[in-house]
Amino acid sequence: MFKLLAPISFEETIKKSLFICHAAPVTTADEALAFFQQHHQPDATHNCWAFKLENSYRFNDDGEPGGTAGRPILQAIEGHELVNTAVLVIRYFGGIKLGTGGLVRAYGGTAAKCLHQAEKEKIIPSTQVVCTAEFSDMAMIKARLLQDGITLIAEDFNDTGVAWTLSIPKERVSDLEQLYINLTRGKGTWII
């Protein structure tokens, strides 16, 4: 899976109709709907859109024949393996009817071209882990645990040592847990 790093726009003319695409990273349905409202063109013939979050999606054909605009936009998002993405395609009708197949190609193609040009970043699934260490082991353990891809979220000190909250890529959790057990000689806690 990937996410957009920044908003992007793209436009093209297909058989005299102007198609303008705006895409942006979003984290909630409300944020996506606000993005569509912000870029909505009331004088346009159609403002069709789709968004995909990690666990949900929606699309809207805005008066185009059912399945010819919103779903192709969603398919463009999915084709680029994107999540947390909102895409709006605005059409100014140019006088030539495209037919249902032409509409699918125009909306989906415009969205796909826009997303192809966008800066993206791979999403690495991660797990949050809380682990503890005594003061005497703290520096050595921290140096070994905070490797590439591991993020220190919180560091809380107490009477005997420290508790760290870490974000760790899922595929590395079991290996790092074993390393942690060895480094603390079994005295530290590791809670997923």
Rank of each mutant, 00 (worst) to 15 (best):
S56E: 15
E11C: 07
E134V: 14
L88E: 01
T68R: 00
E11N: 13
T45F: 02
E81P: 03
V87P: 04
M138F: 08
R58T: 03
R172P: 07
F10K: 09
A44H: 01
S174V: 13
G79H: 04
V83N: 01
V26T: 07
T132H: 12
I96M: 14
R58A: 05
D148H: 10
R144A: 15
G108L: 03
T68H: 01
F59W: 11
C21N: 02
L152Y: 01
M138Y: 09
A112W: 06
T28H: 03
A24N: 03
N47P: 11
A44T: 04
C131S: 09
G94H: 11
D43F: 06
I73S: 04
E177G: 05
Y92E: 02
K52N: 10
T127Y: 03
G188N: 04
L115I: 04
G109S: 06
L146W: 07
I192G: 12
T132F: 14
D175T: 15
F51A: 00
C131M: 14
Q128T: 10
F93Y: 05
P125T: 05
L145Y: 04
H116Q: 13
G94P: 13
E78T: 12
A34T: 15
A23H: 02
G149E: 05
P65I: 02
I123D: 05
E121N: 06
L183N: 04
A29F: 11
K16W: 05
E11F: 06
D61W: 00
K113H: 14
G109E: 11
Q37S: 15
A118N: 04
T132Y: 12
H116K: 12
Q128F: 13
P42L: 01
L5Y: 07
W164E: 03
W49H: 10
A69P: 04
F93L: 00
S9I: 01
K120I: 03
I90A: 10
C131A: 15
F2L: 14
I123T: 10
V83I: 10
F35R: 00
T45D: 06
G188T: 04
I124E: 08
Y180D: 10
G95Q: 04
R58Y: 02
W164V: 09
A106T: 08
I181G: 03
L53M: 00
E78W: 06
A32W: 05
A106I: 06
F135I: 13
R58W: 00
A106C: 08
Y107G: 01
P169T: 06
P7A: 11
D156I: 15
E78H: 05
T100I: 02
N158V: 12
F157K: 13
D148K: 12
G108C: 06
D175R: 15
G99T: 07
V173E: 10
A139G: 11
S9R: 05
F93Q: 02
Q75I: 08
F35H: 00
Q38A: 13
K113G: 12
L88K: 02
F135P: 13
Q117G: 09
I96T: 15
A6N: 01
H46T: 02
Y57D: 13
T160C: 08
Y57M: 12
T68P: 00
L33H: 07
T45E: 07
K113M: 08
P72Q: 09
C114F: 02
